[in-house]
């Protein structure tokens, strides 16, 4: 009796513990962005923009920038669809200012989306910054299964380590205010 009981208890504990490990908590401001590998974008311009190697997975800290704005989205999410023009405007504002364009970059990560789905989103909203796939939800799990759209602003240090400056669900609201907020926080 005792043996079966202990056996059962240990099985439940094991399952429970492994599940609680599977869901990570969402990294907050001041913390590092998870050191997880990201699948590269398909097109050459996007690869050059990020300054990474072609056809090779990369880590966020390898992106050639001081600040990376990470948008977690899904092609299927209506709120992300509505947010797309605002993020495009943010991108255009960054590109307009020489001092910013090489320092602040944007990366969209499509939670649970395939390449086909991400491509549709990109062409539908004429998005000029790279969108990558997270078809197996690996990244989505590592950041605590956030609702979409979710935005991180991440500082990339010269040694490739990262520090989150902003971590929040929902719209970026007014793109120019958002950009000012980033510039202030990053001390650019």
């Amino acid at each position: 009796m005792n043996k079966t009981l202990y056996f059962l208890i240990s099985i439940f504990v094991l399952i429970f513990v492994s599940y609680s490990f599977a869901i990570q908590k969402t990294p907050a401001e001041g913390e590092q962005f998870p050191d997880i590998s990201i699948k590269p974008p398909e097109n050459k311009d996007d690869i050059d923009y990020l300054g990474i190697k072609e056809k090779k997975s990369f880590k966020l800290g390898q992106i050639k920038a001081d600040i990376v704005i990470v948008e977690i989205f899904s092609m299927y999410c209506p709120y992300c669809q509505k947010e797309a023009p605002a993020v495009n405007e943010l991108f255009n504002k960054i590109q307009e200012i020489n001092n910013y364009k090489n320092h602040i970059k944007i990366l969209g990560i499509g939670a649970g989306n395939t390449q086909f789905e991400v491509n549709l989103f990109k062409s539908q909203y004429d998005i000029k910054f790279p969108l990558v796939i997270d078809d197996d939800f690996k990244i989505h799990k590592a950041i605590g299964e956030v609702r979409t759209p979710y935005f991180f602003v991440v500082k990339i240090n010269s040694d490739g380590s990262t520090k989150i400056l902003y971590s929040k669900v929902g719209s970026i609201q007014e793109p120019s205010d958002f950009l000012n907020m980033i510039v202030n926080k990053a001390g650019l």
């Binding site: 299964e145 609702r147 979409t148």
Partner: peptide, 15 residues
């Protein structure tokens, strides 16, 4: 723990 796992990239819209 299972019910927690049920969430699938939920959109903020329907929050």
């Amino acid at each position: 723990s299972f019910t927690v796992l049920g969430a699938l990239a939920a959109s903020e819209q329907f929050k």
